[in-house]
Design a binder for these strands. Structure first.
Lengths: 199, 199
DNA sequence: CCTTCAGGTTAACGACCGCTAACCTCCCTG
DNA sequence: CAGGGAGGTTAGCGGTCGTTAACCTGAAGG
């Protein structure tokens, strides 16, 4: 994990605020003037950094999917041969929870605004998502070999639903603390998968 | 359960198609002309049945929340004293799964377009949702008394996330069949709650 | 010192969208 | 058989939104 110390670029500011606004009011519910105002410039000024509003959403969604997949692949590679499938599954769950807790607006966008993308971008995001799911399915089936593949895939999607529920958990502060929440989600995910395999 | 045999009214047709379109492309992404076309009339014709586009969304969301809460209250009343909390919890889960499997577009809208409502409608929906959650929390805490209330509430929200994942499970047909899917979701929900309580 | 360019600004255009107005046409009923 | 309401139609208004055009400015570089 490389920690950044330099200031965020204007592009990054824009993406961050756009993600927040899109998550709050939906892609079509946010105007470019609003996004500009959120970073201290006015609407058309955004076009110095992005070719259009669509491109911001596309970059956000492709970034999310890619980041999730990359992280999962890294965990898979690190575990290769040195740890059990059980530990690898825990690592995948942990990675997804970190993302769901730290980037709630992005998690919200991820399964909400996909259909607003142009065909080419949407296909790319779908492909990244599919690879991420398949990676999970393989690991889950190693831990629970008696789970048939279609059931495993459904179970994985459902676990994503469970983990991605963080935006509904109330603002950070009403929660029992980040660590406790992460632990709770982790236990529930494992419990759900175990129960899925006990068919 | 009273089964309807009479034809749906025009109002009901409109609501059904509007729900589907809103779920597919978002509230702001659908025009009134499109909704009208989906039921064979043209845009402004809708205003004979609804005062505006907002009213359709409001009626849908209030209807969903009310239906979920009413069903849960009925199950609670039927179980009063005659069955264990365990059986009641299973009944709640079953009711929610039926809804998630039979009315996918509505489930999608339910946690996606709430913020597009007028203040008064949004408050009403939030109140209904809160009552539904609290009802679940009470039953869950009867089954798992060692679960503290904040954790129980988080767990319930997460289970909703799990059960509401049905729209991501692929079109009906790629699934192992409705019964098997319902059973899988049920097992996973119970497993997740059991694991939550084992802290 | 002049040029260039990145990164802004405001004005405005064209398209779209929710909604209203005005009108039409059955069908039911007294 | 009048007539009135239910449920449509098309035309069009007013506002909003994404985008472009034209212009400005401050800092870097030869």
């Amino acid at each position: 994990m490389t920690t950044r110390t330099d200031a965020p670029t204007r592009r990054e500011q824009i993406l961050k605020e756009a993600a927040r606004l899109f998550a709050e009011r939906g892609f079509h519910g946010v105007g470019v003037d609003e996004i500009g105002a959120a970073v201290g410039i006015s609407g058309p000024g955004l076009y110095r950094h992005f070719p259009g509003k669509d491109a911001m959403l596309a970059e956000l969604l492709v970034g999310i999917s890619g980041q999730l997949l990359t992280g999962a692949k890294r965990r898979l590679a690190e575990a290769e041969g040195v740890t059990s499938s059980e530990v690898l599954l825990d690592s995948l769950i942990e990675g997804h929870i970190d993302f769901a807790l730290d980037d709630r607006p992005l998690i919200t966008l991820h399964d909400r605004e996909l259909d607003r993308l142009r065909d080419t971008d949407r296909k790319l995001v779908r492909q990244l998502q599919r690879q991420y799911v398949e990676l999970w399915v393989e690991v889950v089936r190693e831990v629970y070999p008696e789970l048939a593949e279609p059931s495993a895939r459904s179970a994985v999607h459902s676990v994503f639903g469970l983990l991605n529920s963080t935006p509904h958990l109330g603002r950070p502060g009403s929660l029992p603390g980040r660590g406790a929440t992460a632990e709770l989600l982790h236990r529930m995910a494992r419990g759900a998968l175990a129960a899925a395999s006990a068919g």
